[in-house]
Write a protein that binds this DNA or RNA. Structure first.
Lengths: 298, 298
DNA sequence: TGGTGTGATAGCCAAGAGTTATGGATGTCC
DNA sequence: GGACATCCATAACTCTTGGCTATCACACCA
């Protein structure tokens, strides 16, 4: 039913040379091997392709019919390989940057510029990843690098550069009794319903619930959020309150929702991460760029 | 460098199903075999074609690039097979009828008619073969059946039907001293130069030199002839005389050449022959037709 | 008539492609 | 939450395939 491309190549060359020995030389195989393969092809097709008179070889009508197709197939396969090579090259020049919410803070253009000076061919692609994946696509290979909130699940599998360190706020309904304050303590929020990341977020979910400050008691969960839009809606509707990074406050602080710093929570860290074993030049360069940019900003 | 068509088929089906187990079922192979083959293909191309997340399979960019080519190749091969099948069918319906000189005698149309009633699809092809091949193309497979003069070299390799039995004549220059006679004896020709078939004609050459009537003495050879035209020219130019079948007399009896029966030579036999091991229906039918036609004519 | 070149054949070996059995991870169902 | 099913990967084995070298039989050529 199928053919090996090789057999077609063999056939085409024998058809060209009209000699098994000459063809075998061109193909860098022994003459018996070539004879055998051609015979196999003939057997498979159920027809003679060549007529071998003692001393001469010529194409049969069936061989004549096959030859153009064989050539076309060989050419088509070469095209296919070329297409694959192109795709591989594209892939090498593409850097997929995952993020759950935009790192903003002017960092993306800065890193892009640094990367492009070093690898002008690069095509950096931004990719928005749902909050359900705290690695923003690193884990399943959907992203090459990603802006993530520490801590990461399986953190030893990644290497990262901290690009921002900011205090955490709480998003509250505007009419909440704490909404007017300059800042609050985590203790004041103890009895609130909290909006949580989905369970698969693992330790990151706990982090944004500040479970480590509650001496073992689980917070009350008012809903699950997987994007800034959902967070805004949930808070505005009174489903609960949510912790978030100061830099992301503006994403949810709109009609009916305000954000207030939580004074006694450790600041949170935004990092640019990559898979630890990913040594591709583009990836290394982007992380380096982040390191350098961070140093500059300080 | 080459691919096995099978691998492309495997790849295409997995790409369609986005599941190795489902694809394996459709392809009637075990799932590990399929996995392995796809991996081989990936290794050969130096790129991942699928991304296997624990539970899901999806195409990579490279796979996406390959897929249309793979499909095209599969289709192209199917077309090639179809072309081969067509050619095979053509071949089955084609009967190549070899002959050195036309058997004439009205036999060709008669046999053709008989053949076509039995196999209406048949395409009988007449093929003129040089006299250098006494089997008129049977030996090297260039003909499927052939009109030949007995005896044949390697006669046991063929089966045949005698279609005509006629006396032998001698072609003489018009001004030859025997040219006026009603008939001659072989003895009267003993001292003539004879025109002979080429050496590779083997026993047939001896036959037309009537060597068996010369008690061991070689005839004098005046030239080699491989067609009726050459015979006419050679006789007309006085290069020698030539024996030929009465039915072929008209082919050479023109300006300056006459033919005279040789009274004491056994009549010669024209036969329709085929390779003994050739059992193809068309070949058998043509021989049968010849048998029947011969019976009718008697 | 011996030398050279062609395709076919034989015998051997490594790689290819298939199998079954099994394992680890992930959903699903009761 | 534990039993079960499902998915892809791996391991170990078998048989086939595709390659090699050596050699043969035959045709051409000097």
């Amino acid at each position: 039913m199928d053919v090996h491309g090789r057999d077609l190549r063999y056939f085409a060359v024998v058809a060209e040379e009209l000699s098994f020995t000459a063809a075998a030389k061109r193909l860098f195989v022994s003459q018996p091997a070539l004879s055998k393969q051609v015979r196999m092809l003939e057997k498979q097709l159920g027809a003679e392709l060549f007529r071998r008179d003692r001393r001469t070889v010529r194409l049969t009508a069936v061989g004549e019919a096959l030859l153009p197709h064989a050539r076309a197939l060989i050419a088509a396969w070469e095209e296919a390989v070329a297409a694959v090579e192109d795709a591989k090259a594209d892939e090498r020049h593409t850097l997929v940057i995952g993020m759950s919410t935009s790192p903003s803070r002017g960092i993306l253009p800065a890193l892009r510029a640094r990367l492009m000076t070093k690898f002008p061919e690069t095509n950096p692609v931004l990719r928005q990843v749902s909050w359900t994946d705290p690695t923003a696509g690193l884990a399943d290979g959907a992203s090459d690098v990603a802006f993530v909130w520490l801590p990461l699940p399986d953190q030893e599998r990644y290497r990262y550069v901290v690009v921002a360190r900011e205090e955490r706020c709480v998003a509250l309904p505007a009419k909440h009794h704490l909404s007017g304050k300059r800042d609050v303590t985590i203790d004041e929020l103890r009895d609130e319903q909290f909006l949580a990341l989905p369970p698969e977020a693992g330790p990151v979910r706990d982090y944004w619930l500040a479970t480590d400050t509650r001496d073992g008691r689980e917070p009350r969960i008012g809903g699950v959020i997987a994007s800034s839009e959902e967070t805004y809606e949930a808070v505005a509707n009174g489903a609960g309150v949510a912790l978030l990074a100061a830099g992301n406050a503006e994403l949810v602080a709109r009609d009916g929702v305000v954000t207030v710093p939580v004074r006694d929570l450790a600041p949170c860290e935004l990092a640019l991460a990559a898979r630890r074993d990913d040594e591709r030049p583009l990836v290394r360069a982007y992380l380096t760029a982040a390191t350098q940019d961070e140093r500059r900003r300080r």
